[in-house]
Design a protein around this nucleic acid. Structure first.
Lengths: 357, 357
DNA sequence: GCTTGGCACTCTCCCGGATGGAGTGCTAAC
DNA sequence: GTTAGCACTCCATCCGGGAGAGTGCCAAGC
């Protein structure tokens, strides 16, 4: 990846200061930054002419670009990347902000709900598009599985994860067991498969079904059939990708014209690429920041993505984050996303502990 | 309402033909219609000059208007209304279309899912914004209520309606009953309150709780407390308003400029007005068509709404429909919405019958 | 050798005016 | 009642010019 080639030492102190200042001013104003405004508001003891020299160098190195000859400078993706890696000063969240977040996060119960709240909270606090992604449940570690009859041929299956995640799924079945038997099946499955990831649960169930024993034990066979049916229905669902506050980007000047507005909304409609990236990010620890051309989704739209995983690497719950124009306040948003991600992880962990009876 | 004043006889045959033709051409092209193009493509044996006279009359009566002096004519809301009430020729759906709809509708299971499918189907077939609205469940007639423990202090409550609707809700409770007791509670509640609307169920439960008997019967009190808690959690939720395919309107020429695009998306973001109208429409039988200024939501945005209720007046399941610019193909979309609404009602009715054991 | 003032150059944005085209309303003739 | 003709209005587009912003380069200064 190109990132490694960008040595911190490639830029001397003054150049770094200028780049930082340009990124910050540009993020604040949205206007290309001229040498003059840099001299005025940047706090440098230098004339515009001198700054122009520095800026020209930065442009040659690919950190800045000009929309046209007589315009000021704008950071390139590479410029943002250097800024994020080396120059950015993260603004710490105030106690008040933390309180608001903690309060909002604590309100919800179910995983889906928790994640919804998070994305709308993010969208509000960031003024960008908030995202919440809940991946497939292959890695969900099962605590219990219960069955409730809800129709002549319909059974509601409730799966509870050790991390507090609750999923339910309706399955149709030809002639369903009676109430007593459903209870027995619940107990048996919950006992037998407790502590295993759902994909393993499914595999084992199918193995048992094919096994010798099941041929002679119809009760066992019925149990495994019901259980594996339920798990099989639940597993393939790419759970959900939530985008919240798409209209907030309408206010950003970079999307003021009809054409880029159009493109932007079409980008959000077509979610596969984003899901793709988020799935990949699930394996990474800590905050992920992708700028513009660095990913399939953000490329072409001048988007950046800041996201983080909730839950541990071994049992990931999902991703939360924000999407916005590359011109976003990384210094403010990175800690924000980070904090919300951690708050969510904590919250879910607690409610998981709650369940460990 | 102004509609009643608009007597069919107010317009003579020729005027009606001209109005119909203008609406149809305008819907097809999106361009103001000139007397000349009307003469060429309208099938009238008249010169542009004669048509101009008719058009001037229609304008005086408020059915047409001109964007500016030297432009052609465009229907007003009043013009569309007359068209819809008296002139529109509904295009019947082809067998193929019906098959597609039936197939897609039959795929889903839960109410929410069914409605989602419907709205995205509508959006695809209509090329407009598809909507699905699931109102509060006050009128849901209960068939059964079951409880499953899913955490140390968490109980999942599953309510099944006689119409096949399944809702579940997690409630927290200080010291939850054991499994046996939960079963007893389920049986008791399902037996006692079967066939009643949820709002009535809640009311009765609260009455019993306050009643003499409950004071001495702790078992009964616990039951009612759990039950009423569950119902109270479920009831207030305005279930959901789904809008699907908002980007499809990006292609419409009336939203080509950035400003109206903006306004449009903000309109969709702010859903209260729409919910308001849909709630009101729930009491109306048959297809509802609202044009432009005829409702709070469609006014100001030049939207029209075509929607219909699923389910009966006594136990309404929700509304489905489409939203788009007033310039929409009423003749095609009205039967489409109607058919999908009926297909959904049928589907849910069937699965309700399924449940009536 | 770095810094800086000066200056010519470029590019965008905005404004005003001219032009062409589309469509109407009116009138007079059929 | 219908229609051809004509004057009129209004919009969309193009064009040229001027103002403004910002740069690059050069030569002078510290």
């Amino acid at each position: 990846m190109a990132r490694d080639l960008m040595n911190f030492d490639e830029l001397e102190t003054r150049s770094r200061d200028v780049l930082r200042e340009i990124v910050m001013q540009y993020v604040a104003t949205g206007e290309p930054i001229s040498s003059r405004s840099l001299a005025r508001r940047g706090g440098f003891e230098l004339s515009p002419a001198s700054l122009r020299n520095v800026m020209a160098d930065l442009e040659d190195l690919g950190y800045l670009s000009q929309p046209h000859t007589s315009a000021g400078r704008v950071p390139t993706d590479r410029g943002y990347r250097f800024f994020i890696d080396h120059l950015m000063k993260s603004r710490r969240l105030s106690q008040h902000e933390k309180d608001v977040i903690d309060e909002r996060v604590s309100r919800a119960d179910e995983l889906d709900e928790v994640m919804h709240h998070a994305s709308s909270l993010l969208s509000q606090l960031s003024n960008q598009v908030g995202l919440a992604f809940i991946p497939t449940l292959h890695h969900l570690v099962m605590r219990s599985m219960d069955f409730v009859q809800v129709g002549e041929r319909k059974i509601l299956c409730v799966i509870v994860g050790t991390n507090g995640v609750i999923v339910n799924q309706i399955i149709e079945i030809q002639d369903p067991p009676g109430r007593e038997e459903l209870l027995r099946i619940s107990s048996f499955i919950s006992g037998e498969f407790h502590g295993l990831a759902l994909e393993i649960v499914r595999e084992r169930m199918l193995n048992i079904l094919e096994d010798e024993r099941a041929r002679h034990d119809t009760m066992l066979a019925r149990t495994m059939r019901l259980g594996s049916e339920a798990v099989s229905e639940v597993l393939p669902h790419e759970r959900e990708l939530h985008l919240e506050g798409a209209t907030s980007i309408l206010d950003k000047p970079e999307f003021a014209d009809a054409e880029s507005m159009r493109k932007t909304f079409l980008a959000f409609e077509e979610k596969e690429k984003l899901v793709d990236i988020l799935n990949r990010c699930l394996n990474e620890d800590g905050l992920q920041i992708l700028v513009g051309a660095e990913s399939q989704f953000t490329r072409n739209y001048n988007f950046s993505l800041i996201a983080t995983r909730c839950g541990s690497a071994s049992s990931p719950l999902g991703m939360v984050g924000v999407i916005g124009p590359t011109r976003m306040e990384y210094g403010r948003l990175a800690p924000l996303v980070d904090y919300i991600g951690k708050a969510l992880s904590r919250k879910i962990e607690e409610s998981g502990a709650d369940n460990r009876d």
